[in-house]
């Protein structure tokens, strides 16, 4: 049994209303998306903005209610769980958000933020919670320097590490990563990406890795699902997608990856005019 089985997931949002407030226009964000995710696997969801990648990620966690389809997590029908069960289930399926600056409560210290899941889901006492928070922060390379600080005092990379630590608190088996490095400086992207990869190995995590940057996908993903306009274009192993893309759309996406040092057909480096190469 796969860790996560998603079938025929569909969601449309209302895009316009008439003067009585009735919905007139519909935007089909996600149309019949199906995929599976094994334990310890990383499935990347790629596509341009508006392709419905993030919506899929959020529907898996039921942060957005799908119109139809099914989500089965470890044999549990996620869409049928009652609110209380769902909250308990959330311990095992976590999320890391794109913008680390806004995914942490600005009025909560780093320590409290990381310890919050323990407060919500367990009856461990304060000292235990704080000890575990420190351990988690150690694990993501933050240490105990910023325990009493507020999010505004940390950099984007540090905040994303804190967010990762918070997601790990309840030892989940699935983490939905919604563009986890897109908002970070290029210089810290690799660090955070490596951290995610190391944690995956160490803890056997499965990632649903929503991303628009194929260069990152090549590094972290086992399999890739390409989406366009709410539909799955193709799903294959990362190697296959990069070596033998079957669909035109996938080829176009691959061609759009920026090359660090562009060269022409003869192998000469292309140099911006007006500068001496």
């Amino acid at each position: 049994m796969s860790l996560l089985e998603v079938e025929n997931l569909t969601k449309s949002f209302s895009a316009g209303r008439d003067w009585l407030g009735r919905r007139t226009k519909w935007l089909n964000a996600v149309k019949g998306v199906s995929f599976t995710l094994e334990r310890g696997e990383c499935l990347a969801v790629v596509g341009e903005s508006g392709a419905g990648k993030s919506t899929v990620g959020r529907m898996v966690l039921r942060l957005i209610e799908p119109d139809s389809g099914s989500v089965t997590f470890d044999g549990i029908d996620v869409l049928a769980t009652k609110p209380k069960q769902l909250r308990a289930l959330r311990q095992r399926m976590q999320m890391i958000f794109q913008d680390p600056y806004s995914s942490l409560d600005p009025r909560m210290t780093i320590r409290d933020a990381v310890a919050e899941p323990l407060l919500v889901h367990t009856d461990k006492d304060r000292a235990t919670r704080e000890k575990e928070a420190v351990e988690l922060l150690d694990k993501v390379g933050i240490g105990s320097r910023y325990l009493e600080r507020y999010p505004a005092e940390l950099s984007g990379g540090q905040l994303q590490r804190v967010a990762i630590a918070r997601a790990l608190t309840m030892k989940p088996s699935l983490i939905v990563c919604d563009e986890p490095v897109a908002a970070l400086d290029v210089s810290v992207r690799a660090q955070v990406l490596n951290l995610l990869r190391d944690l995956q190995e160490e803890l056997g995590l499965a990632y649903l890795f929503v991303c628009h940057d194929l260069a990152l996908v090549e590094v972290i993903a086992d399999r890739v699902m390409v989406m366009a306009a709410g539909e799955v274009v193709e799903t294959d192993t990362t190697d296959q997608i990069f070596a033998n893309p079957r669909q035109e759309y996938t080829k176009k996406l691959l061609a759009a990856i920026p090359v660090p040092l562009p060269r022409d057909a003869q192998g000469n480096r292309l140099v911006a005019p007006g500068r001496v190469g």
Partner: peptide
């Protein structure tokens, strides 16, 4: 961070 709190349970 409100959505994150929901996701945390």
């Amino acid at each position: 961070y409100i959505e994150a709190s929901i996701a945390l349970g």
